[in-house]
Amino acid sequence: MDAFDWNVINRSFVYLFKEGMTFTLTLTGLAAVGGIVFGTLLAMMRLSSFKWLSLVATGYVNLMRSIPLLLVIFWFYFLVPYIGAWMTGASRPIQVGAIASSVITFTMFEAAYYSEIMRAGIQSIPRGQVWAGYALGLDYWQTMAKIVLPQAFRNMLPILLTQTIILFQDTSLVYVLSITDFLGAASKVAQRDGRLVEMYLFAALVYFVVSFGLSLLVKRLQQKIAIVR
């Protein structure tokens, strides 16, 4: 057996980060923002006094949380073109592409998890705060946008970020769509150069450093942002 060739990292460094990591971070960012926005809407629906809104949101969240992410990625990849065609009335499946499909999938999937976090956040705001908003004459949307959600978001920021770290790791599953994310890039180099051990070790190390570093940051943030009551 050959000795380890760590030089493979050096040779592929630019490719790994410029191609792979850029995509990984872009997907993480887009899915996190989209997922938090959509998830917040889901949480508001779930807490709504309109029964059917609440039922739809609950059903969606439970469904997403009960199916493996890998399956959801597959299903969306194959289904979205048909749903798109059905919605636009086109006769052929719409070409969505692997990248757009992955962004949509992760947004929809993570929204289920973010919505549970935001639901807890909204429920953590005392009833009196809502009353105070209503008493000033604010309507439901204004009370939510100006009073409840800013506080809920702030209270839940550490947990939202922790969920985003998990999302960052989960994005590696896009390899099933043959997308070149960071792990995909590492995998390609590994197979091209026959350096599986080195590349997979290096990839693991990078994921570890980023995730662990971020979680340390979250910890520090947590101590900083608690709202003084």
Partner: peptide, 15 residues
Amino acid sequence: RARVGMVFQNFELFP
């Protein structure tokens, strides 16, 4: 409600 002022037991200022 905008025309009726209300003051609460727990103040309910927006923190």
